[in-house]
Amino acid sequence: MKYVPRLVLFLAIPAVLFLLPWWTLVAAPTEGASPLFWAGTAVFVLGYATLPTAMFLGHGPRQSDAASIVGDTLLGVMWVLFSWSVIGQLARLALGIAGVADPARSRIVAAGVLAVAAALTAYGVVEARRIPRVRRVDVPIRGLGKGMDGLRLVAITDTHFAALDRQRWSERVVDVVNDLKPDIACHAGDLADGSVDKRHAQVDPLGKVEAPLGKFYITGNHEYFGDAQGWIDHMASIGWQPMHNQHEVLTRDGDSLIMAGIDDPTGVGLEGHGPDLTAALEGADRDLPIVLLAHQPVQVSDAAAAGVALQISGHTHGGQIWPFHYLVRLEQPVVAGLSRHGATQLYTSRGTGFWGPQLRVFAPSEITVLTLRSETR
Rank of each mutant, 00 (worst) to 15 (best):
A343E: 15
P35C: 03
G318V: 03
D183A: 06
H234M: 02
A284C: 07
H325F: 05
E223T: 14
L327H: 08
I69M: 12
R136I: 09
F354I: 10
P364G: 09
T73M: 08
V174D: 05
V8E: 00
L288S: 07
L93Q: 12
H273V: 00
K208T: 03
A363C: 07
V43I: 15
Q358V: 01
V100L: 15
V109F: 00
P357Q: 09
G143N: 07
M148A: 09
T266R: 10
A122C: 03
D175M: 06
A67M: 14
P103Q: 10
P265H: 09
A363K: 02
L93T: 13
A305Y: 01
S170V: 14
L93S: 07
D190N: 06
P35V: 02
L36G: 11
Q358A: 13
G58S: 09
D276Q: 06
V361M: 13
I232K: 07
R107M: 10
E223G: 13
V361K: 03
L95N: 11
H200C: 03
T316L: 09
H317F: 05
D179Y: 01
G124H: 10
V249S: 11
D197P: 00
T30H: 12
A284F: 04
L164T: 02
L75V: 00
G32E: 14
S68V: 03
L90M: 12
V70Y: 02
H295E: 07
V209A: 08
A66D: 11
G272Y: 05
A39N: 02
I218Y: 09
L270H: 04
V139S: 07
V45G: 09
I238N: 07
D227Y: 06
D264V: 05
G230A: 04
R172D: 13
D190W: 01
F18W: 10
F324I: 10
L11C: 10
L206S: 11
H222V: 02
S106H: 07
G274Y: 08
A119I: 13
V209Y: 09
G283A: 03
A284K: 12
T316W: 02
I97W: 12
G269W: 09
S301E: 13
I141R: 02
V16Y: 11
V139E: 06
K208D: 12
G32N: 12
S34W: 03
G58C: 08
W231K: 07
A66T: 12
W231R: 12
Q63R: 15
V8H: 03
T24Y: 00
A304G: 13
G58M: 04
R360I: 14
L20I: 15
L292C: 09
G214L: 13
W22K: 01
A119W: 03
G214I: 08
A12G: 04
N221W: 12
Y217N: 05
P14Q: 02
V196Q: 09
S339E: 13
T219R: 08
H187K: 01
A162Q: 13
P5D: 06
R152T: 10
K146F: 01
S237C: 00
D149A: 13
L51K: 00
V174I: 10
G254C: 04
